Amino acid sequence: MKSRPYRAQFIAYVLAMMADNIEHVISYWVVFQKFHSPALAGFAVLSHWLPFLFFSVAVGGLADRFDPRRIIQCGMLLFIVASAGWGVFFITDTLEMWHAMLLLVIHGCAGVLWQTPNQLLLYDIVGPADLPSAVRMNATARYLGILVGPAVGGVIMLALGSSHGIILNTVFYLPMLLWLFWAPTRSKDAAPRRIPVRGLADIVQTIRDIATRRVLTSMTLLAALTSFMIGNAYHAQMPGFAGDLGHGDPGVAYSVLLAADAAGALLAGIALEAWGRLKVTPRTAIVLAILWSLSLLAFASAGIYTLAIVLLFAAGFFELSFNTMAQTLVQINAPTDIRGRVVGLFNMAGLGMRAFSGITVGLLGAAIGIHWSLGLSAVALLAFLLVLHRRAAKHG
C-alpha cells in the first residue's frame, strides 16, 4: 500500500468488485422472484464461467502481446452494458428468460476480459518481491466488494428500487475505466512479446510448457478440481438455502449468508497480511483447500441458521487463503515470456472450470436438492484433494 499506483488500483478494484456484486445481488434476487427456476440459477453459473474456460488463455495471450490496460477497459464497458441492460428490462417490466440469459453471458465475457490482464498489470505495478502481498490484498479487495456489495445493493434497492438502483450501479465501474488511461504498465525496456494468439493451440502448448514444472501443474490442478466440483455455484443457490433455513425474512437471510462468506475471506486477507508467517507452498495451499471443502460439507448438512453463518464464514476464510496462495505461486513461477498464457491457463482452471459446478451443484440441485448436491460435491472434492496432497508430499 506504500505504492501510489497500487493504492489507486486497489480503490478502483474494490469499487468495480462492489459493482459486480451489487449487480449479482439485485439481478439474482429479481430473477429468482420472477422465475423461481433452479435451472436458470445453474445457467447463471455456466454463463458466468464458460467465457473463462474458452477464452482465458487467449486473453492472456493478448495481454502478453498488447497493452493489458485496454483489454481491461473493454471488460469495464461490457459490465456497464450489462447493468444498464438489467435496468432497462426492470423499468419496462419486459424481462423474459432469454433476456436474462443474454445479460448473464455479457457479464461473463466482461469478467474474462478483466481478470487475467489485471493480474498481469498487478505484476507490472508492484514487481515480484511484493507480489504475494499484492495478490492477497487484491483478493481481499475482491471479498471486500462481495461483503460491501450486498449491503450497498440493499440500501440502493430500498432507496431507488431494483430498476433505478442497478442503473446507478454503472457509475461504480467508472473509476477503473478512467484510471486505466493513466495506470503504469510494464517497463519500456522490457522485451516485446510478439507470440501470435492461436486459440486452442495456445492452450495445448501452454500445458506442454508447464508440464515439467511441478509447482505450476499442482496449483493449476488444484484450481481445476476445486472449481469443477464446487466453485462458487452455491452463491447462485443461496436464496434457496436461505429459504430452507427458514430464519425470518428470506431476503435478509440471503444477504447475511453471502456476507458471512465474504467476511470470512476479508478476515483471512487481513490476518494473513498482518501475520505473514504462513509459508507459501503447494502443500499448504492444498491443506487449506481441504479445510474449505470440509466447511462447505458441514454447511450443506446444517439445519441451524446461526451454524450455517459460522460455517460460511470459515469457508470464506479458507477459500481466500488457498486461492491467493495458488495464484501467487503461479505468477512467481511462470516463465516471463508466456506469463499471460500461464496465468490465463490458471484462470481457465480456477475460474473456467466453475462452469461445470453449475452442473454438479446447480442443475443437479434441481434434481436431488441443493443440500445433497453441494454435500456430495464436497465429498468427491475431498477425495481428489487427498490424492493431490499425497502427490505433493511425495515430491516434497
Rank of each mutant, 00 (worst) to 15 (best):
V135M: 14
A190D: 15
L222V: 02
G269W: 08
P250Q: 09
N138V: 03
R208V: 00
V171S: 05
A223R: 03
R194D: 14
A201M: 13
D209K: 08
G161C: 14
S227Q: 10
S227F: 00
P192D: 06
S133C: 00
R142C: 07
S218H: 13
N169C: 11
Y254T: 07
L216G: 09
G161M: 07
L222H: 06
N169G: 08
M229I: 11
A141Y: 02
L180C: 06
L147A: 11
A233N: 07
T140C: 03
M176I: 07
A233Y: 12
A211E: 07
W179E: 11
A159Q: 12
L200K: 04
A159T: 11
P239H: 07
L147S: 01
R136P: 00
I270N: 00
A224I: 10
L266S: 06
N138S: 09
A141Q: 04
L178H: 01
G246L: 13
R208F: 01
D189G: 05
L245D: 12
A134K: 04
L272T: 07
L177M: 08
A190G: 02
R186K: 13
A233Q: 12
A224E: 05
L174C: 11
W182F: 09
D202F: 05
A242P: 04
L160A: 15
R214C: 03
T220H: 00
I203M: 12
P196R: 06
I167G: 08
A242M: 13
A236T: 14
G246A: 14
Q205F: 01
V256H: 01
Y234R: 05
F181M: 10
P128F: 04
R194S: 12
L272K: 01
D189W: 01
A224S: 11
G251Y: 11
V215E: 11
A236L: 12
L200V: 15
G154N: 09
V148H: 00
L245A: 13
L180T: 13
L158C: 04
A263D: 02
A211K: 13
Y173N: 04
W182I: 15
P239Q: 04
Y254G: 06
R193Q: 14
A191L: 13
I230Y: 00
A139E: 10
D244H: 12
R208I: 04
Y173F: 15
A129V: 14
T206R: 06
T220M: 11
I167W: 04
T212K: 10
L131H: 00
Y234C: 12
L180D: 14
A265P: 03
L147N: 03
L245W: 03
T220I: 12
L221I: 13
D209M: 11
T226C: 13
V252G: 02
G145P: 05
A134P: 09
A139F: 05
P184G: 03
S133T: 13
A224Q: 03
G145A: 10
L221R: 10
G240N: 07
R198Y: 10
V197G: 05
R186S: 14
N138P: 00
L180V: 11
S218C: 03
I210C: 05
G165Y: 08
K188R: 12
D249H: 09
L178C: 02
R186H: 10
L158P: 00
I167L: 14
A223D: 09
F228A: 15
N169K: 02
L216S: 10
V171I: 15
A260Y: 01
R194C: 04
I230F: 02
G269Y: 03
A263Y: 00
A141H: 05
A141E: 07
S163N: 06
A201R: 15
